[in-house]
């Protein structure tokens, strides 16, 4: 058995987790201070997670994000259960954000990777449109090698 086969067997047998991550650049017309930036990130993460549950997920693995604003202010958020308050580390220095980069990881149990990817990207599109925030996806990733065979 080669290394690749061993890896697939180990992880498929044990996790059944759908994984997706995206790195997006934000262009914000109405500048956001630290509090509103935090709310924006929390709403996005909660929204993606609830949509994943609506589509069949039954447990959060880990949903986490890291926002870097122009000038270096950062916010990191970690969500492990919708019934447990998320952990937030807000290091905004008082400036308002017009440009930022946001990394979001979505790992849930009960959906396969392509479904998590589709759900996350679709929800993000609607979420940003509602807030008139322009964005571009710099990179997105899901572990193709771990999904079920077509």
């Amino acid at each position: 058995m080669d290394q690749k086969e061993r890896q697939l067997l180990t992880h498929r047998a044990s996790d059944e987790l759908g994984k997706f991550s995206m790195w997006i650049r934000l262009y914000i017309k109405d500048p956001l201070d630290g509090k509103r930036s935090e709310e924006m990130v929390l709403d996005l993460m909660n929204g993606i997670t609830k949509e994943c549950f609506a589509r069949g997920a039954d447990m959060i693995g880990h949903v986490k994000s890291f926002l870097t604003a122009e000038g270096g202010s950062t916010i990191s958020v970690s969500l492990i259960d919708l019934d447990i308050p998320p952990t937030v580390q807000n290091r905004f220095d008082g400036t308002e954000m017009m440009r930022g980069e946001l990394i979001v990881h979505v790992i849930v149990h009960g959906l396969w990777d392509p479904q998590v990817r589709e759900t996350s990207l679709e929800f993000t599109k609607g979420f940003m449109a509602e807030r008139s925030i322009d964005y571009e996806v710099i990179n997105d990733f899901y572990e193709k090698e771990k999904r079920v065979k077509d």
Binding site: K19, S21, M22, W23, K64, S65, F66, T68, T74, S76, Q89, R91, I103, H105, I107, N139, D140, F141, Y142, E143
Partner: peptide
């Protein structure tokens, strides 16, 4: 060693 090629944990450590 995070999921995929986009790393959150590294950024959390580096700050």
């Amino acid at each position: 060693n995070d999921v995929g090629h986009i790393n959150v944990d590294r950024k959390c450590m580096e700050v």
